[in-house]
């Protein structure tokens, strides 16, 4: 036979393309189009260990798969595997029809993580737009669980309207904690609303952090991340202290299918979390 096949790494799933069955344990409506599923493993399966920022491929029986970030607490012993999903198309609508007791297929966890290690000892700025708060929530949980490891914690979130704002009550409890500064904004508010109205970038000047010793983690649509990074730069943060998360069509999540490429990056494997300076060039190219 042909000699010297490349070695493969041990310890990774032998069949990363085949889902495992998980059961929906709980379901919670977040907004009109967004819901949270808590999943439990079935049979002998272990709870999933993951890092903040990683995602799973969720399979709705007979419909298809979608990449969905894990939005729950990453610490060991926390119960259930949590995903927050926005209903936008076929698969996410099929996921939206699930109720407790139903089964889903899960593959993962995949992808890179928020830089919780490198950010130790620094102020943390979390900036989220819309559903973008879901992939950031595990990082916020981690920071709050390891409060002493970090400086100030700043949580800036934006949504279209107050009705679209994610985890509203929970955001309140975060803001109440020591050393946590939270600002919340919507694009427009018709109902009584005492938080900000305006685009999420306008929250940056309101926040108090040390730009020389802060790390920002941004999650939202690309355009929101671009303007947020610009605003953070204005306030003194350098691009190597800004992290963003990218999204592309994904079929396999293990860098075989080619769909998620952005220039040289396979977002499923090299991302979705990127240090901004590493992705900046491709970030600003149109139609890549």
């Amino acid at each position: 036979m042909s000699a010297s096949l490349p070695n493969t790494m041990p310890g990774l799933p032998a069949a990363p393309l085949v889902p495992e069955p998980w059961q929906v344990a709980a379901r919670r409506e977040e907004t009109a189009d967004t819901f949270t599923l808590t999943l439990q493993p079935t049979g002998e399966a272990e709870p999933m260990r993951f890092q903040p920022g990683q995602f799973n491929m969720l399979y709705a029986f007979g419909t298809g798969e979608s990449a969905i970030s894990i939005s729950g607490d990453p610490s060991e012993g926390s119960s259930g595997l949590i995903h927050t999903v926005r209903r936008v198309g076929y698969v996410t609508s099929a996921l939206a029809r699930l109720s407790p007791g139903d089964m889903v297929g899960v593959r993962g966890p995949f992808g890179s993580a928020w830089p919780m290690e490198d950010a130790r000892g620094r102020d943390l700025i979390f900036m989220a737009g819309g559903i973008g708060l879901a992939p950031l929530r595990p990082a916020i949980y981690h920071a709050l669980n390891h409060r002493a490891d970090y400086g100030r914690i700043i949580i800036l979130t934006g949504a279209r309207t107050p009705e679209d704002a994610l985890y509203l009550a929970e955001q309140e409890t975060w803001r109440e904690q020591d050393g946590v500064e939270g600002h919340l904004t919507v694009d427009r508010a018709e109902t009584p609303w005492t938080h900000n109205v305006g685009v999420v970038t306008t929250l940056v000047p309101k926040a108090c952090f040390d730009p020389a010793n802060a790390v920002a983690m941004i999650c939202g649509p690309e355009i929101m991340m671009r303007y947020s990074a610009m605003e953070l730069r204005k306030s003194g943060l350098t691009d190597n202290r800004i992290y963003v998360t990218m999204e592309r069509n994904m079929k396999c999540a293990v860098a075989f299918c080619g769909h998620c490429q952005l220039g040289p990056e396979f977002i499923c494997k090299d991302g979705p979390v990127y240090r901004f300076d590493r992705i900046r060039f491709w970030f600003s190219q149109r139609e890549f």
Partner: peptide, 24 residues
């Protein structure tokens, strides 16, 4: 293609098992 399917963290077993049995 060896690099694509067997050169990173994940191995495509479908490719690998075919690849291992060929004679060129």
């Amino acid at each position: 293609q060896d690099k694509v399917f067997m050169g990173s963290a994940f191995t495509d077993e479908h490719y690998r098992k075919r690849r291992e049995r060929i004679f060129t």
